[in-house]
């Protein structure tokens, strides 16, 4: 009989490498919250830590695998998903979770992200989106909203920003959910769904960075903003924000430009994953080989 841990203390004992604590994260950072949600989802699903591989790139959120008592691969900037592809394919028994940030996944590593979605590799990608390069001190990223200030946009950001969840949906992801660190229960539920998905699951977590991205002066204000300005994308979501149905994407993006945060389960669909397709291919290839012998 396996004991399922559930108290915070039990979870900490079971899942964290305590000799590496405290973390390198700044006060008010959202990474710890997201880590908490991920651990709770893993624990609820009773996934073996021996079979868990956390893969990450470069940036603050990419430091998370170090703190987890499981396998961890802290790779190069933007490339985590390409590493994860090789890992998952050669051992499908592993549960592969990619921790990444907005700079990692939407700038230097965007192509790897889109290609892995296209292939539908069964990995769970969790992007902690703090809308800036936090580790290097607050430079503009492809998800920084237009008009925002950063150390490299001292006269305001004049570039349009990406909404990564809609990008993932457009590329054909099997599962996409978008929440903020203020949506704890929804996030845990989505991470659980993502982990069970046979195919690529993408969970985008908007996260405060009060030290490098001073949109708000502290995390309390960030969380208030998240709760007050979040709009649910789909009317069928069971969340604590006011449900809203957009008539089309244009309306949705207009709301985003006005400072609203689109949250919710963006897509959940079934499609064959890469591993299944590869094993089918193997059978065909072998039959053909024998026929031609």
């Amino acid at each position: 009989m396996i004991k399922i841990a559930n108290s915070t203390k039990d979870l900490r004992e079971k899942y964290l490498r305590k000799d590496l604590l405290p973390t390198i994260f700044c006060p008010g950072c959202g990474n710890g919250q997201v880590l908490n949600y991920v651990i709770r989802a893993i624990d609820a699903l009773n996934i073996s830590q021996d079979n868990l591989v956390f893969v990450s790139g470069i940036g603050c959120s990419s430091r998370l695998p170090a703190y987890l008592e499981a396998y961890g691969v802290h790779t190069t900037h933007g490339r985590a998903i390409a590493y994860a592809t090789g890992i998952k394919l050669t051992n499908p028994e592993l549960t592969v979770i990619v921790f990444t940030g907005d700079g990692d996944i939407s700038a230097i590593g965007l192509n790897h992200f889109l290609q892995a979605i296209r292939r539908n590799i069964s990995i769970t990608v969790i992007c902690i989106n703090n809308e800036n390069y936090g580790m290097t001190g607050g430079q503009v990223s492809p998800t920084t909203p237009m008009g925002h200030f950063s150390t490299t946009t001292p006269y305001q950001n004049i570039e349009h920003s990406f909404n990564l969840s809609f990008l993932a949906k457009a590329a054909g992801a099997s599962y996409v959910a978008r929440w903020t660190t203020a949506h704890s229960l929804q996030a845990i539920k989505s991470i659980k769904k993502g982990l069970q998905k046979q195919g690529l699951a993408f969970i985008e977590m908007l996260s405060p960075c009060p030290v490098s991205k001073k949109t708000f002066k502290n995390t309390t204000e960030y969380l208030q903003y998240y709760l007050n300005e979040s709009i649910s994308y789909s009317p069928n979501q069971n969340n604590n924000t006011s449900a809203h149905v957009f008539k089309d994407l244009h309306e949705c993006f207009t709301a985003q430009y006005e400072g609203k945060i689109i949250v919710g389960e963006i897509i959940d669909k079934e499609k064959p994953n890469y591993h299944q397709l590869y094993e089918d291919l193997r059978v065909r290839a072998r039959n053909e080989f024998r026929k031609n012998k």
Binding site: V55, V73, T75, T76, R79, A82, Y83, A84, T85, G86, I87, L89, T90, N91, L94, N111, H112, Q115
Partner: peptide
């Protein structure tokens, strides 16, 4: 990505 994938797979 090719290089990344072969490093990842090597650990299996």
């Amino acid at each position: 990505a090719s290089m990344a994938a072969i490093i990842g797979a090597s650990w299996n």
